[in-house]
């Protein structure tokens, strides 16, 4: 049952050291503010799950909070590589990182299996792909009707899923609009779900087929305007592409990275996100 609460309280209540956390948002609605709160609370030894790790996991990995990463595309989309992730994989800095690597199709299917209460996902995938040789969680099953060999991966069931959304109502029903990614599946698959939202409204005013997470599927709703920045929130503010380009330089050097994290995350509060999107607002 959803409760409205401050982000710091939600993170401290639900995420424990050593837990498995999914932060989802497929380019759009990435829960940056929630990730920064986890970094401030220094909750470590995490298994981090995310299709496209991008900046937030580069930051969490660079701060040493991750022991394992489950992912399907570890790049800064359109910009290049994730330099903190690379440093962890190639040099073990600041700590070695175990990786479990999949394709997008596999992760999307695995979240869906988690939401559907199934033990595994089945799909036509990994044909000729070498990941199947290096990831023991990629296996195969044979269709009992046609004999076709299909790929199987375990369902994803995070301890905590974090997402960002446009709106919640007073009860905590959540509306997601635009590129909805795997957020619904990731929330339904999780033991607990924390949602940051742009705003709380009296009426979601959604059309009948809108992507809505009923309040009883969510544990905490935290109002953090701008909480996806430098990702974006459809109808609220645009993607800060210049920030994604700048990250490549910030993350290239360990000291520059640490200094940036101190100034922008450790010494900051969730409230700063609203200022960061002030110039990016889109006109409805």
């Amino acid at each position: 049952m959803a409760r409205h609460m401050p982000l710091a309280e939600a993170v401290g209540t639900f995420l424990k050291p050593g837990g498995t956390a999914a932060f989802e948002g497929f380019t759009h609605l990435i829960p940056h503010a929630a990730a920064h709160e986890v970094i401030r609370q220094d909750i470590g030894d995490l298994t981090l799950v995310r299709m496209t790790p991008d900046l937030i996991y580069d930051q969490m990995i660079g701060m040493g909070l991750a022991k394992k990463l489950v992912f399907s595309y570890a790049g800064n989309p359109g910009v290049g590589l994730l330099r903190r992730l690379r440093d962890a994989v190639e040099n073990g800095w600041p700590r070695p990182l175990e990786i479990e690597e999949h394709s997008h199709a596999a992760m999307a299917n695995a979240y869906e299996a988690g939401a559907a209460g199934l033990p595994c996902a089945m799909f036509r995938g990994y044909l000729g792909a070498q990941l199947a040789e290096v990831n023991p969680n990629i296996r195969h099953i044979v269709c009992p009707f046609t004999g076709e060999k299909l790929a199987a991966v375990p369902a994803i069931r995070p301890d905590v899923t974090f997402i960002h959304a446009q709106k919640a109502d007073r009860k905590g029903n959540v509306l997601i609009e635009g590129i909805v990614g795997v957020q619904k599946e990731a929330v339904l698959a999780a033991e607990n779900a924390i949602v940051t939202v742009e705003e709380v409204v009296d009426d979601l005013d959604a059309h009948p087929n809108a992507c809505i997470l009923p309040h009883w599927t969510v544990d905490a709703v935290c109002t953090v305007p701008g909480g996806a920045h430098p990702s974006y929130a459809h109808g609220h503010y645009a993607r800060d592409n210049a920030d994604y380009l700048a990250w490549d330089r910030i993350a290239a050097d360990r000291d520059t990275f640490r200094a940036w994290m101190t100034d922008n995350v450790l010494d900051a509060q969730p409230g700063v996100f609203a200022e960061r999107v002030a110039d990016l607002e889109v006109v409805a």
Binding site: A108, N109, F123, V180
Partner: peptide, 29 residues
């Protein structure tokens, strides 16, 4: 041109936007 595969411009101008599991299961597979 989108910088990423999920820039807002893509959704704003699309005929429809579907969930990612549906993208891979129905439309590609």
């Amino acid at each position: 041109l989108p910088l990423s595969i999920g820039d807002g411009e893509l959704c704003d101008t699309a005929v429809t936007t579907v969930p990612v599991p549906e993208m891979f299961r129905y439309w590609l597979q």
